[in-house]
Design a protein around this nucleic acid. Structure first.
Lengths: 192, 192
DNA sequence: CTCTGTTGTCTAGCAGTGCTAGGATCGACT
DNA sequence: AGTCGATCCTAGCACTGCTAGACAACAGAG
């Protein structure tokens, strides 16, 4: 069985290569530059190989999205655990979130803006997405305030961050006052 | 000169038809269904005619976006002027905004999500966009709270609404608790 | 009323997209 | 050593946004 195992390993390796390459390409030149032809060319295989791993382009975006969610969760947890006190932890969460979105625009888009064919807010939601939300919840549930369900509070806080992230990157908000906006958001929303 | 005037009128009329048709098509089947061929077919002209009015598809989206911004501003102003008291006016603004986004998803996307080739937050920003922001500002500047620039407060509030609108429509947030989320947002952000 | 020149429109086509059918090739097992 | 199945690629489909160039319609001049 070692032959088959080797083949499986190689297949899995190639799949990682596809996702990594798609991500790089998207981060470097935008998702509109990620075509099946260019992607196939980059991994030095023909187009149909992509379709032996993924149903289509959407699923490739979805794979990048899951990677992104995992990393976002890790970034948020790292930032919050390094901060002292509820107020500082919430602020650290917000800055970490926006920083991630700004540094990985293509990945962030894959996760929260593009259609990666993933289920959200449902039972069959992939684990990384649920975990990313959980990472936010862990810190935010402490500052939801009385009578407010932590989940609901987290959704609102998340939406605000998402709005700041997307509007800023789309040029709708000037990046200069980014910090002031975050401070205002944290001061008002978090009940410390 | 009346002949030329008539032609100009007809041209303007056809341009309105293009925008209206693109909007209908997008609202009915999504922007990905708005192709230059289908659009040309719908207005009963050939494709190149579109390019005698607009530089490309992006500009058509941009035209729909401007319409949308104008209507959004009107909807917000209508809702706020019908409400009594600062708290009620802010809530009315929020509900009107989200209602507009939910009822006109394609138009909302054109305005704030897709690339319509429009400038934002700059000097050469089209008037309808500036006015839509102004409509929010008019109501929100009264509840910004001391020491907080009204413009900054409006940006944050807008971002939160935008986040709620997009995440809800993308299936990231369940629509059930929509009202509770808005109430929470208004209660926390607005200093009545 | 005819001719002319401009203005407007359409046909046809380019280069690119996501995706797939079918043939070729390679290699693991009998 | 030969067979047969898995794997991969070539070629192509139907579509996209966009454009060059042929063609027709029509206002203005004579």
């Amino acid at each position: 069985m070692s032959v088959q195992e080797r083949k499986q390993r190689e297949r899995a390796e190639r799949e990682r290569l596809i996702v990594a390459t798609a991500r790089e390409l998207a981060e470097r030149q935008g998702w509109e530059a990620v075509t099946t032809r260019r992607l196939a060319e980059s991994i030095e295989y023909s187009q149909p190989v992509l379709y032996s791993h993924f149903r289509g382009k959407r699923e490739i975006i979805g794979a990048v999205a899951l990677q992104g969610a995992t990393e976002l969760a890790a970034a948020v947890r790292a930032a919050t655990s390094a901060a002292d006190g509820p107020r500082a932890r919430v602020a650290a969460l917000a800055f970490a979130y926006l920083d991630f979105a700004a540094r990985n625009p293509a990945v962030y888009d894959a996760s929260f803006q593009l259609d990666g064919g993933l289920a959200y807010a449902q039972e069959d939601t992939p684990e990384p997405l649920k975990d990313a939300f959980a990472a936010l919840l862990e810190t935010l549930e402490g500052v939801a305030g009385g009578g407010v369900p932590p989940g609901l509070f987290t959704e609102v806080f998340w939406a605000a961050l998402h709005g700041l992230a997307t509007l800023t990157r789309a040029g709708r908000l000037l990046p200069e006052d980014a910090e002031a906006r975050v401070e205002l958001l944290v001061d008002r929303l978090a009940m410390v």
